[in-house]
């Protein structure tokens, strides 16, 4: 029986990660590694202050897709139901990538923009902050 005296901690991404207590060497492959997506990758996009879309979008995209194509072909259709979407200029908006402020290169690919698998993008459109003063 494999027993662990106390939690094994190691530094990873500056967060303390502990380890599961198990009867055996408990190790599994992450289920959502990029190679499981058949050449595609995931990217999440949230339009800040537009809670009409209840959660960030989970999008399946080609890694070599341009940022412009992500906006035009994927994000714009996804937000079309929102009355403010017609006024939104996402390429001139403020972006965050994985929590850091970020200036996208519209014609570079997602990968070349540093948008890797399961990256989170948050876009803020100044002047457009949702409906009813509630970020909807």
């Amino acid at each position: 029986m494999l027993k662990r005296a106390g939690p094994v901690t190691h530094k990873n991404n500056k967060v303390m990660i502990m380890s599961v207590n198990a009867l055996y060497d408990y190790k599994f492959e992450p289920r959502d590694k990029v190679e499981n997506f058949n050449g595609m990758q995931l990217v999440y996009v949230q339009w800040a202050g537009h809670l009409m879309f209840c959660a960030p979008f989970a999008l399946l995209v080609k890694p070599d897709m341009s940022f412009r194509a992500l906006i035009d072909d994927v994000l714009k259709p996804a937000v079309a139901a929102h009355p403010q979407s017609v006024k939104a200029d996402f390429l001139e908006a403020q972006w965050e990538l994985n929590g850091e402020s970020f200036t996208p290169n519209a014609d570079a690919s997602l990968v070349d923009n540093g948008i890797d698998h399961k990256s989170m993008l948050v876009v803020t459109t100044p002047g457009l902050d949702g409906m009813f003063n509630t970020g909807y």
């Binding site: 599961v20 207590n21 992450p30 399961k118």
Partner: peptide, 27 residues
């Protein structure tokens, strides 16, 4: 980020649960 993979959570509390036992939730 944990062992080279990104993970997303609805809350600090769910993130804490992951950090306690990542092997469980990566799958």
């Amino acid at each position: 980020e944990h062992e080279g993979e990104r993970y997303h959570f609805c809350s600090e509390a769910c993130c804490d649960i992951f950090k306690d036992e990542p092997e469980k939730y990566v799958q």
